[in-house]
Design a protein around this nucleic acid. Structure first.
Lengths: 224, 224
DNA sequence: AGACGCTTGTGAACGTATGCACAAAGTTGC
DNA sequence: GCAACTTTGTGCATACGTTCACAAGCGTCT
């Protein structure tokens, strides 16, 4: 299955869940594509990788398709997750309700700061980073979430991998390297903003995006 | 410039900043590519869209290249940003230091919950959602960050767009539609985890990823 | 000054992703 | 049971992105 398709399955799953909550039983590729914000041919091709689960002339049965995607992604089981780094972001992640409802169970919280130990966050005690390896092994954790400062990210990832974690979601604004066989995805807030800024700069032409330096250059060119 | 290249420029910028902090003056495409985790030919092609800023036989001057990328992305000016939704995640975003140091100034915080009004977060008073349009216009805000619950996301985006915002970064787990000309990027925590789960399921074979239902099927197949 | 070694910048080949357009296959109505 | 209509699943063309491989260019050393 193409990676681009895999990345869209959660999107379809969400759209289907919305439809199911509104009591919709059947949906066409056109409707589903519209509510997921993609092209309908792309949607159909994506779904065709799962198998032939539509009915020509009718569409897709919402609940059935939802179950197939859930199974394909691997959400029929619960995945235990450890969050490393319980600062502002770690707190927010621990308290984020969207995980539990989507098959992910936050099994442990870990921080290196002794002053945070024992603090209760989202019903879990924060444990010390020294225990990381033990926790991962005891709880059979395969997925780690890194929400540490940038300078700690590589070390934390190394330790997670050494302890047996094979998938990491990195929120730290750092470039980390992981060995072959370990999946790493990164979520980077300022990268996203920078991409927006790039397009914003081009949209507004010179008006808003003119720096003092550029304005001087422009003035010189015009006044010559 | 290709979109894929734009998305990597912030990555290069970060790598270059790291090098600059370590006092490195010059870097080859091979080294820079390694520290950014990309192929060196790709890096060179990406940089070639900026212009011919390398020196054959030598490499790239770190500070100079950093400045060029900064300028290309549009970070020579500060961008005013409003965060809508000051829950757990909104708090974390408001307190995230990485914004300010990368050219983004959090100019206002907005929430619909009256009990949060006037609360001081990251040195700013939380203001009521009713003031959103006024705030956006008064402060000349072009970029909005949405950290509301899913059900509020579309409405908030509509209001941001109506008020003049042309770039939105959406953290709400919802599919939102925006008109042509408005850039929308989304950061979705559970989507990322779901993509990891998909690969995790395939890595471990049946071992960890076996559900009760699948185990029953398997048992039947083996014993039957 | 000239030869040598290194690194950039890019043409070309390859691979992946997208979207059109339509045949195949189902449902509905008569 | 057949015709008309709807919608899926997919072959094909096109666009986009990545990687290889190498000529062109720069600095260095003799």
């Amino acid at each position: 299955m193409p990676e681009a398709t895999v990345a869209r399955l959660p999107l379809y799953l969400r759209a289907l869940t919305n439809l199911a909550e509104r009591g919709v039983a059947t949906v066409s590729s056109e409707e589903l594509a519209a509510s997921a914000g993609v092209n309908s041919a792309k949607l159909r091709k994506d779904l065709s990788y799962l198998g032939s689960y539509g009915t020509r002339g009718v569409g897709y049965e919402v609940d059935f398709l939802r179950h197939q995607i859930t199974r394909e992604i691997g959400l029929t089981q619960d995945w235990a997750v450890v969050i490393v780094g319980i600062g502002n972001l770690g707190h927010a992640l621990a308290n984020y309700g969207g995980f539990a409802s989507r098959g992910f169970r936050i099994a442990a919280l870990v921080d290196a700061d002794p002053s945070r130990l024992g603090e209760e966050v989202a019903g879990l005690n924060v444990r010390h980073a020294d225990e990381l390896e033990q926790i991962v092994q005891d709880l059979g954790i395969a997925i780690g979430v890194v929400a540490t400062p940038a300078r700690a990210a590589q070390l934390v990832c190394d330790r997670l991998v050494a302890a047996g974690v094979t998938s990491i979601l990195n929120f730290a604004p750092a470039i980390v390297q992981v060995p072959e066989g370990v999946d790493l995805r990164k979520v980077d807030l300022s990268t996203e903003l920078q991409i927006l800024a790039y397009h914003e700069q081009r949209k507004n032409g010179a008006a808003l995006a003119l720096t003092a330096e550029q304005a001087a250059e422009l003035a010189e060119a015009v006044n010559g």
